[in-house]
Computed example of a mutant assay.
Amino acid sequence: MPTPNPSAMDFLLTRRSRPAKTLTTPVPDRAALIPILTAAARTPDHGKLEPWRFIVLEKAALERLSRLVVTRGEAMEMDMDRITKARDQFADADLAVAVISSLKPSEKIPQIEQIYSAGAVCLALLNAALASGWGANWLSSWASHDRDFVHDGLGLESHESVAGFIHIGTETRDPPERPRPNLDEITTWLAE
């Protein structure tokens, strides 16, 4: 017979991301961030490849990335509204953790499973931050997928990509509840 963990289940059934633009200081210091990163690193990882890594982005790094977004967006002749939205994700943040999908050579573990594992790390990191009492949000933008931005801004190699930026801080207000999926519409039960 399973042993339920009602507190964990209640957390999962009620968890809500906090909009990144509503997060402020204080942010977790290194000592507070280590258990959050440790929890995220316990993500399922077929083959024990650890096909992901973390880059902790503190305020000065986020400001540098916000300037790089503008440079890259202008070089790509992108619409200023798109540039501004991506810039503000970095400029308005005080702490974010970039989860990097870092594919490993493997004859047994397909790359897609490694990418899924990096996505799972994002959710685990988000939930660990929320469970620790912080506000958190998982974001990406066009800049996340721009090779020049991720190479110049984060030092990513050609086999690496950004799975997500997890913004962490102190929440300034409770987010509104949003509609949740209708289980009847997304669930198929197969009995045989």
Rank of each mutant, 00 (worst) to 15 (best):
M1K: 13
N5Y: 10
N5S: 06
P6Q: 05
A8Q: 05
M9L: 11
M9G: 09
F11R: 03
L12P: 02
L12Q: 09
R16M: 13
R16N: 03
R18S: 04
A20M: 07
T24M: 10
P28C: 02
D29T: 10
D29Q: 04
A31G: 12
A31H: 14
A32Q: 07
A32S: 03
A32I: 07
L37M: 00
L37Y: 03
A40M: 08
A41K: 00
A41L: 01
R42W: 12
R42G: 05
D45Y: 02
G47F: 10
L49S: 10
L49Q: 11
P51A: 07
W52T: 05
W52H: 02
V56I: 05
L57D: 00
K59C: 02
A60Q: 02
E63C: 04
S66V: 01
S66C: 03
S66M: 01
T71R: 10
G73H: 04
E74G: 07
E74M: 06
M76H: 05
M78G: 07
M78A: 08
D79W: 04
D81G: 13
D81H: 15
I83M: 01
A86V: 04
R87F: 02
D88R: 06
D88T: 11
D88Y: 06
Q89R: 06
D92R: 02
I100T: 04
S101E: 15
S102G: 03
S106A: 11
S106Q: 14
I112W: 15
I112F: 09
I115V: 08
G119C: 11
G119N: 14
G119Q: 13
A120P: 00
C122G: 15
C122P: 10
L125T: 13
N127D: 09
L130K: 14
S132W: 11
G135M: 06
G135A: 01
A136L: 12
N137K: 07
W138N: 00
W138R: 01
L139A: 15
L139S: 11
S140G: 12
W142D: 01
A143L: 07
A143Q: 09
A143F: 07
S144R: 13
H145L: 06
D146L: 13
D146M: 06
V150D: 01
D152P: 09
L156W: 08
L156D: 03
E157C: 05
F165M: 11
E177F: 13
P179H: 03
R180L: 04
P181V: 03
N182K: 03
D184A: 06
D184P: 03
D184K: 11
T188Y: 04
L190Y: 14
A191E: 15
A191Y: 14
E192W: 11
